[in-house]
Amino acid sequence: MVTANDLVKTYGKKNEVLAVDHVSFSVKEAEIFGLIGPDGAGKTSIFRMLTTLLLPDSGSASVQGFDVVKDYKAIRNTVGYMPGRFSLYQDLTVEENLDFFATVFETTVAENYDLIKDIYVQLEPFKKRRAGKLSGGMKQKLALCCALIHKPTVLFLDEPTTGVDPVSRKEFWEMLKRLQSQGITILVSTPYMDEADLCDRIALIQNGKILSIDTPENISAAYPDKLFAVKANKMSTLLKELAQFKNASATYSFGEYAHVATDSKQFEAGNAPVEFEKELEDYLADHGLENIEIKEIKASVEDCFIKFLK
């Protein structure tokens, strides 16, 4: 459905800022594909090239078989795009925005109402309200409705959930799942690592480069080290002491736990994880920590991302 082939994009007078660095990937039909990475990683530039808004410096890309440079008109007719910033008319009401975008896409709200019905019913009580006065979550829903109004086959969502509270984010992802089940291909970018698991496949991206592309499960499974979650009575002391622990390749906080990564080679030699846990527990107890709790865990996408950044 969507392919990117060695895409490069630079900015600046002398092209000194490399925003997208030889990026290639392909997205299958009716798949939710996530570009996961922090701000400035190049997600927006990739999206803009795929939606024909920017020309790549080199490389090629296509959407539904249409080339993003040559066939830009055809692409503009079929894709839905929701930019990172809230890009609706703040001084128009919910209804007016929707009607406007419907006519821009040469359709009517009534024609494709079933596609947006689930989302629109939540907006309906506010349809006379100006878009600028909606809450963050509601704005997001309206923007999604507007991007869907012409029944696109591919949907590009650039950071749709940034700055949105967890409840609205959850609802938003439920909506995306429903759209997927209607056969729409969805490309979504996000800086929130916990949203990675909601995608079918993801590309981890940093500094314009793709670190890894696969399903979230495979990426987690490919984590090379062994990972342990540790908890104790005082988090800040725990982190400080863990940083000094010799047999750890990385230690960092992770929610209520601290994560400790250690080279998995030592376990191949017959050393059992239980022994490592014992060693760690003794070390922490020696340094005055109490209520120590250690367990082996599977790596999450965020753990993998941190590993890739090293």
């Binding site: 922090p38 701000d39 990683a41 800086p191 800040s236 982190l239 965020e302 991302f305 941190i306 950044l309």
Partner: peptide
């Protein structure tokens, strides 16, 4: 907001230090 997971933790390290 929008910061990579590694830098996010470094910011939090600073926050912990300040609280201490």
């Amino acid at each position: 907001g929008g910061v990579d997971p590694s830098a996010r933790r470094q910011v939090w390290d600073l926050i912990y230090a300040a609280a201490d």
